[in-house]
Amino acid sequence: MSQLWHWFVAAIEAGLEWSRAVTGSAGLSIILFTVLVRLLLLPLTFSQMRSMQRMQALQPEVERIQKRYRNNPQKANEAIMKLWREHNVNPASGCLPLLIQFPILYGLFLALRTFSSGAFLWIPDLRHADPYFVLPILAGVTTYVQMKTAMTVTQPQQRTMLVLMPLMLTFFAWSFPAGLALYWVTSNVFSIVQQIWMNRQQPAPAPAGKGKRGHERGIS
């Protein structure tokens, strides 16, 4: 495992050095590296987005379930989970693009220790924290917007995640090298644009009527 991790970090270092040679800038190299990573993750991301679209299409049925079992939250949650399973919906899929990047973030953190960085915009050195706290704030704001555009918030756990995740990322970006915050902000902007583009496409079909009938048979 240690050798595999060493190879992973070495690959990130090589990617940063290559992108720096192409762009001539340490900051632009991280932005280019981020875009390349997100392009590699596109197949998984599109699959998750389709799942979220199905969840949004099923939202009226979810609201009917919540109204029907408003005095029995446990029964309502069970019925909603059953409905989502019937339509192959994963309620946590909106968070997966964030979670899957944590190993990349840690690898980037290690790679930045040897990366020949320099000044970028207002930041003297991307290996150190942003002295003006602009990137940490942008990291938190863009994380919130990214999650908000990707999630249909119906459950208390989702509302908690929608608040905690941006706060956590703001704290990390405040404490860690600015290069990490730049990666995260770029990744979030990529995700937001990608989600907006997906939302403008034809929504994934979700047979609400069929889901309703199947659901009613399951809970009758």
Rank of each mutant, 00 (worst) to 15 (best):
residue 178 A to E: 01
residue 63 E to G: 02
residue 131 P to A: 04
residue 77 N to H: 14
residue 40 L to F: 06
residue 116 S to H: 12
residue 217 R to Y: 07
residue 197 W to L: 12
residue 89 V to L: 13
residue 189 V to S: 01
residue 56 Q to F: 07
residue 127 R to T: 13
residue 12 I to S: 00
residue 133 F to K: 09
residue 199 N to M: 13
residue 103 P to H: 00
residue 175 S to P: 01
residue 99 L to F: 13
residue 134 V to C: 05
residue 19 S to I: 08
residue 70 R to I: 03
residue 194 Q to M: 06
residue 7 W to Y: 09
residue 35 V to T: 03
residue 74 Q to C: 06
residue 56 Q to G: 07
residue 127 R to Y: 06
residue 207 P to I: 11
residue 60 P to Y: 06
residue 37 V to C: 06
residue 158 Q to F: 08
residue 141 V to K: 06
residue 89 V to Y: 07
residue 220 S to M: 15
residue 128 H to E: 15
residue 183 Y to K: 02
residue 75 K to Y: 06
residue 140 G to K: 02
residue 120 F to Q: 04
residue 181 A to I: 01
residue 102 F to R: 00
residue 77 N to K: 13
residue 122 W to T: 04
residue 199 N to L: 14
residue 119 A to C: 05
residue 72 N to E: 09
residue 136 P to V: 10
residue 66 Q to H: 09
residue 154 T to I: 15
residue 35 V to F: 03
residue 35 V to I: 13
residue 22 V to G: 06
residue 44 L to I: 12
residue 197 W to S: 04
residue 189 V to L: 14
residue 47 S to R: 12
residue 210 K to N: 11
residue 123 I to A: 01
residue 156 P to R: 00
residue 10 A to H: 07
residue 208 A to E: 11
residue 145 V to L: 15
residue 124 P to Y: 03
residue 84 W to S: 10
residue 16 L to G: 01
residue 83 L to C: 09
residue 33 F to G: 00
residue 95 C to K: 08
residue 164 L to F: 12
residue 182 L to K: 00
residue 37 V to I: 09
residue 2 S to Q: 13
residue 136 P to S: 07
residue 220 S to F: 14
residue 3 Q to E: 12
residue 206 A to Y: 04
residue 166 P to M: 03
residue 52 M to P: 03
residue 68 R to H: 15
residue 193 V to P: 01
residue 86 E to L: 14
residue 163 V to Y: 09
residue 25 S to Y: 02
residue 19 S to D: 14
residue 205 P to Q: 15
residue 74 Q to D: 13
residue 84 W to K: 14
residue 218 G to K: 07
residue 88 N to D: 12
residue 118 G to Y: 00
residue 129 A to S: 15
residue 135 L to A: 03
residue 4 L to T: 09
residue 176 F to E: 08
residue 102 F to S: 02
residue 118 G to A: 11
residue 95 C to R: 07
residue 10 A to E: 12
residue 69 Y to N: 07
residue 210 K to I: 11
residue 188 N to M: 09
residue 140 G to F: 13
residue 106 Y to D: 05
residue 70 R to N: 10
residue 22 V to L: 14
residue 122 W to E: 05
residue 178 A to C: 01
residue 118 G to E: 02
residue 92 A to Q: 14
residue 169 L to N: 10
residue 77 N to A: 15
